[in-house]
């Protein structure tokens, strides 16, 4: 049940549906995003994330349901919606034949900003996004990471209170993705409300205040990353690294009564246990008896990935596939 529109909500979506021929892209999704919140839509490819962003951006019409941005209806008042949002689409689709500066100025002009203000804004954004040296370089000649950063910059030229980021780091190398995540974090610190779609679980965990898990056009659950992790019914586990390692030691582990089972994980052993205290007592005695020593020992907490797998019933690999990777 979705609560009524609150003055603190930047985005409210109620029973949104969208179909493409017989394919149901969105099957009655509902959620709200509080002002200043980073809200993640997490799901595999084809789950309905981009369709949601397109409807909220006013470029695609829903079959039914309502969506409001800062109180403006996306169907009835698309111009006001567009004035208040910045959108970073899945692909970095600025104009390859224009320079970085010209792209930003053009975006500013279409938001109704005066040319002078657009020029000042472009200069500031190029500085913030570390692209000052590329200001006169054609967009088409930038690296993927730089293109992505400039696309984010273009979405901020009119200083929008709400930002939609559709798969912002897809296709980027590790360093570029990390740099972009830092930019998103700084936007969050500036109080911008952000709707972020991703199929990278770790990214959603790191950046989002709340996450909606979406599969086949339906939202399965909405909660904070911490609450999602806590909801996972995983066995307690402990990772232990011992030295010196000898192969025969594994046979001895099976004699321990406090370990339900164990797995060898690279240089470590993971013990699945029922009670940490009783396991630690028995394990310490065992190590002493075998004349071994403990190099490291860590309790294992469930990850958001564990939560996702348990909640959705999907395989982990589903989320690793890149867009179009399976085609």
């Amino acid at each position: 049940m979705v609560k009524a529109h609150s003055i603190d909500d930047a985005v409210t979506v109620k029973e949104l549906r969208k179909s493409y021929n017989t394919f149901s892209a969105l099957d009655g999704i509902s959620f709200s995003i509080r002002k200043g919140e980073v809200f993640g839509l997490l799901g595999p490819n084809g789950a309905g994330k981009t369709t949601t962003i397109k409807i909220l951006s006013g470029i695609s019409m829903p079959a039914s349901g309502t969506a409001k941005i800062l109180g403006y209806d996306v169907v009835n008042n698309p111009v006001m919606v567009k004035q208040n949002i910045g959108v970073v689409p899945e692909t970095s689709n600025l104009y390859p034949e224009l320079t970085c500066t010209d792209n930003l100025i053009f975006a500013g002009r279409l938001y109704g900003i005066s040319t002078e203000k657009a020029k000042t804004g472009a200069k500031e954004l190029l500085h913030i996004f570390g692209l000052e040296e590329k200001r006169n370089v054609l967009f088409g000649r930038l690296s993927s990471g730089m293109k992505r950063r400039l696309t984010v910059a273009a979405s901020l030229i009119h200083d929008p209170p709400v930002l939609f980021l559709d798969e912002p780091t897809t296709g980027l190398d590790v360093m570029s993705a990390r740099a972009l995540r830092e930019v998103i974090q700084s936007l969050k610190d500036r109080g911008i409300t952000i709707l972020l779609t991703s199929h990278y679980i770790e990214e959603a965990d790191r950046l989002c205040d709340r996450i909606a898990i979406i599969v086949k056009g339906k939202i399965i659950t909405i909660d904070t990353p911490e609450a999602l992790k806590k909801s996972v019914r995983t066995e307690k586990a402990v990772d232990v690294k011992i030295s010196p390692y000898t192969p025969f030691i594994e046979k001895e582990f099976s004699k321990m009564s406090t370990a339900v089972k164990y797995e060898k994980r690279e240089e470590m052993f993971r013990f699945f246990i029922e009670d940490l205290d009783t396991f630690m007592s028995e394990f310490s005695a065992f190590i002493k008896g075998q004349s071994l020593s403990i190099e490291s020992i860590n309790t294992v907490s469930p990850s958001l990935e564990d939560a996702f797998v348990e909640i959705t019933g999907l395989r982990r690999e589903i989320m690793i596939q890149e867009k179009g990777g399976g085609k």
Partner: peptide
């Protein structure tokens, strides 16, 4: 083809 026309749709213009 490049998606640039879709980008224009994101601006507050008809």
């Amino acid at each position: 083809m490049t998606g640039a026309l879709e980008r224009l749709m994101l601006y507050p213009v008809s």
